[in-house]
Amino acid sequence: MESQVSTFKTKKGLAQMLKGGVIMDVVTAEHAKIAEDAGAVAVMALERVPADIRADGGVARMSDPELIIQIMESVSIPVMAKARIGHFVEAQILEALEVDYIDESEVLTPADEEYHINKHAFKTPFVCGCRNLGEALRRIGEGAAMIRTKGEAGTGDVVEAVRHARTVLGEINQLVNMPEEELMTFAKNIGAPYELVMETRQLGRLPVVNFAAGGIATPADAALMMQLGVDGVFVGSGIFKSGDPAKRAAAIVKAVAHYDNPQILAEVSRNLGEPMVGRNVMDLAENERLAERGW
């Protein structure tokens, strides 16, 4: 048999290899090295972390390929990069750069307010954000090989990450215990492909790996998300907007590996220096909420 390259199994498989790990936002090659040395399983290469995107305002786009290449050359772990929702040409460029994963991300300004990228058309796997089961299964239907709950990026406030993870996992519980005759209406109500609803019911979990993102700033936040039942975490602004990024990054990696061991969590949480300042999600205006982006 000939070898088959970039199958859905290998796309989904890379995310399976990232489970139990921490994916960190980095804006320079130097940051990427710090993240790798701290034990990150992958880095997300971008020009500005979400907290700065919030502060700066304006249109947030794909990062400069030069920066992404520098980061790819500096580390041996997988490198992810973000494309705007619906911006399939940014995704084509990221694929041409051979990034390991593309994040079709609500953190950037959406390029299309109706349609997401047809991710089946790419060899590079995609991760997409979700707030609930329907959104997760629509993205998987479009070809996403990994899901992350959105949370509210760039806030350092974990409340939305918790809300979205509880929503997705709660809906899966509901689905698993639902009488057969309710399934089609459930699929209709959450706006998800029926076949993926059935697969999720049968598996008792999402058909692809599901990380948490958006607002995770401490080892305790990361372990909280793991105990709620996600497969791993993304930490964006939480590391490089804190007082001692290397130390905090290593502590969050350890907290995810030992998420159900409070003794170790207590140990790794000591003396981490200043956390990122953060913004309460409650204080954000409607139009400042990034998680609302996605259809």
Binding site: M1, Q4, V5, S6, P78, E98, V99, D100, Y101
Partner: peptide, 13 residues
């Protein structure tokens, strides 16, 4: 490590 290249070269055989 990563002897076949980046993720885009991942394969089944």
């Amino acid at each position: 490590r990563n002897a076949f290249g980046r993720q885009i070269a991942s394969f089944e055989i």
